[in-house]
Structure formats: C-alpha cells, structure tokens
Design a protein around this nucleic acid. Sequence first.
DNA 1: TGAAATGTTGGGGCG
DNA 2: ACGCCCCAACATTTC
Length: 480
Amino acid sequence: MSTLVWFRRDLRLADHAPLRAACASGEPVLPVFIWDPEQEGADAHWPTGAASRVWLHHSLASLGAALALRGSRLLLACGPTAAVLDELARATGATSLHFNRRIEPAARALEARVAARLGERLAVNAHGDGLLVPVTRLATASGEPYRVFTPFWRKLRETFDPGRPLPAPSAVPAPAQWPASVALDVLGLLPRIRWDIPLTDAWRIGEDAARARLWDFATGHAGHYDARRDFPAVDGVSRLSPHLHFGEISPRQAWLAVQSAAAAAGLMTVPETMLGWLRQIAWREFACHLLHHYPQTADAPLRDDFRDFPWCDDPQAVARWQRGETGFPIVDAGMRELWQTGWMHNRVRMIVASFLCKDIGAHWLEGARWFWDTLFDADLANNTQGWQWTAGCGADAAPYFRVFNPTLQSAKFDPDGVYLRRWLPELARLPTADLHAPGQAAPLTLAGAGVKLGSTYPAPMLDHGAARLAALARLKRAQA
DNA sequence: TGAAATGTTGGGGCG
DNA sequence: ACGCCCCAACATTTC
C-alpha cells in the first residue's frame, strides 16, 4: 500500500495539494518525476527547450534534496509516463495517484492516457495548484471564455480568494523499501557543451531561493512595481518567471505573499501600487485560460483573419535578430541579455518582438520558437499569447498599427543608456544621445567612441520608417 | 503595454 | 503699440 505523487511543473513542497493529500493518506508516499521521451522527442509537441532543460535539472536536484531533508526521496525515471507510473504502482502496491494538472495540449493528452491506463486500479486525483482559478470557472456573462484581459482581471479580483497558505509537510512518510531510481544525469538535461554554466551563475534555482526572492520582492520592489517595471536598467521587476514556470512557487503563493507584505506594512488591503504585479500574475493566468480553451493557438493564430497572412520568410534576417546584430541597440542588447542569462526584461521583450514581427515581418512562430529554446521561463501559454499579442493575431492583441520605434523606446525606457552599455560594451563610449541610434550618429562622433559601423557594431539592418509603413500596409490589407 | 500626422494655441520676435 | 508670422508645446486624430 502506497501513494504516488507525480511531480511535473510543480517542483516544490509548500502549497502542493497532491503531496499534502498523499501525506494525509497515512500511506507511504512515493514522489516521482518522469522524463518522457515521447513528450520530449524531436517530433513531440513543443518539447522542453534547451534552457528550460538546464533549469529543470537544477530544480529537480533541489527538490530531491528538500525531500531528503524530510526523510523521503525524489524518484527519477526515464520512459513513457503511463507505463512508468503503471510499473511503479504495481511494484509498490500503490492505491492512489496524485498530481497537478497542466494546461498544455500535449500534457493534457498525457493526463488522459495516464487516467485511462491507471484509473481502474488506482484512485487518480488531479489537483489544480498551477492556476489561481480552475479554467472552467471564469466565464463571461454569456458563458464564453474571456478573450479580453481587462474584464478577466476585474472578475478575478472580485471573485478570487487565495485562502490560507499550505505549508510544506514536515515529514513525508517513506516506504519500507525504495524502488529503483535513475540518477539525475541519466535524464540528460544538461548540454554536452557546457554553455549552461555562465547562465546558471546568475540564478539561484529551487524552491528555497524562489520563496526568498518572492518575499523580498513582495516586501520591497512590489510597492513600486508600476513606476519601475518598464526600465530594464532598474532592479524593479521580480525575475520570478522561471520559478513560477517550474512551480517552485505557485501563483497562489505569489498572491498571498503580496497580501502578507501589505498586512505586514499595516495595510488592511493590497494598495493600488502593489496591484500592478498581481496584474501580471493575472496575465499569466489569462494566457493559461486562453491556451486551455483554444489549444490550437500554440501553433496557429487565434484570429481567423491571420490565417493566410503574408509573413516574410527571411532566415538571414531572423538569424541577425537572434544573434543581436540588427544594428538597433535596444534590440541587440535584449537579444544578448537573453542569450547570456536565459532571461529578458519584459519591456525589451515587447520591443524585440515588435521588431521581429513588424519591422522584419517574420512569422511570430519564429520568435516563439527562439524564446522557447533560450528562455529559462519559457512557458507555452505565456509565450504563445505574448507573441500573438505582439503580432496582432491573438486575443486582446495589440492593434495592428501599433509598431514600436526601437530608438524612441530606447530613449524613453533606458534614458541614460545603462542597459545598452551593459550588453553592448562596444558602444559604451558613445555619448548617450547617440547611443540609441548609432546608425544616425555623426562620423566624427562614432570615430571618437571607437565605433566603426559594419565592423565593431552592425549598421542598421533596415530603415525603421520604411519597415513600419510596409508592415502597416501588410496588416491593413489582412484586416477582415 | 505606440507613433506619426495633423490641428490648436499662445508667446515672442519683428516690421 | 499693433498685427503678422513663426514655432514650440500640447492636444487630437489617424494609421
């Protein structure tokens, strides 16, 4: 007799209903994580990206250590999920299975296969810690899923009650004998060429670090979020996205932390200044609801009038964007931050995304795939909605005529050039006024700063004014 | 969670 | 002193 807890993208012990329920059963608990080649192969649907695999490796190590401190283990297995769980259940005489639902199409299909295979012999319990509110609960007056964020957010604020925090169990009952487990390295999550080491240096991975960062943020920068969130050189955002994606913290814990921080400051309710960040948590929730209700949007535009949109197929231009060699400093700085840290500031994400979809005219999936592979926080729901929002083909998307001007955005949100100089040291000696658009700087100024366009730094790959007009023409024609 | 084009206004230079 | 024009500053409209 035992209980299985199947860990997925919920790599934590606190606020974890499946683990809590398993511990309450009184039976020995078998925590397991499965790396499934059928889900992760080259022909699988959005298999885990390269950067995400690195994070996953370290997060699993952290979760294993945390379980060990509670007298338990994290079993690791490599194989088809349903078969692995089936075998484990037979070997240990398990009578029930607990796990948290996911909303990604492939993950939901997998859950269905698991339930079909194990449902007759085991009590299969699906929990919903990944979301604040179950996807079936929030609906418009006509019963449709929300497709506009603002009413979604209003409804969420009115109806959501986070309840009380669910602490981590102090001990997890162990079986008399542990079944076999593979070593973490066997999962092969780390790259052969160890490019991951400098990337992970910038992060502390795992539940303990995530909770510490959450509390620091909730009691500190969260109170100034709206005033500082748009400035990539300022330490004003939470950087919690990878932790949230891997479930090292839950969105409910995020909500509760903000409430607790407000209470600790002597406030009865969460002040307006701290709501800005919860609004971002709600964007994440909104993206999950959309992907659940419109699962085809992971690969296709939500809006029908974009079905035959004339995206420009220019692999060389996309490659320049990927490498941060567009000649537009704010774009290049962002793409290099992404490549070197596995993360990019949100304001800069919008700028580089607008540049790819509007200026270059590339298909939004080109951007989505690159982000998917390079971001530590790559999340199918957020990534899909973010890119479709930028391209104008998603729910509540940016109007087609909204085209970011990279130079103006740069001057507005990095006025002193601190962010640009950090990621583009070859431009560091340019006066700030010229830093945002070296392509328009006087030759003497460039020479004085040691910048040679086309050799030390690329000349602009396109004329933004002309690219903007071309994008407007394409988009206007496509409007139904 | 834009930006450019176009419109309006009012202060100041100047004949 | 007056009217005219220029244009910066701001507001509105349009893409």
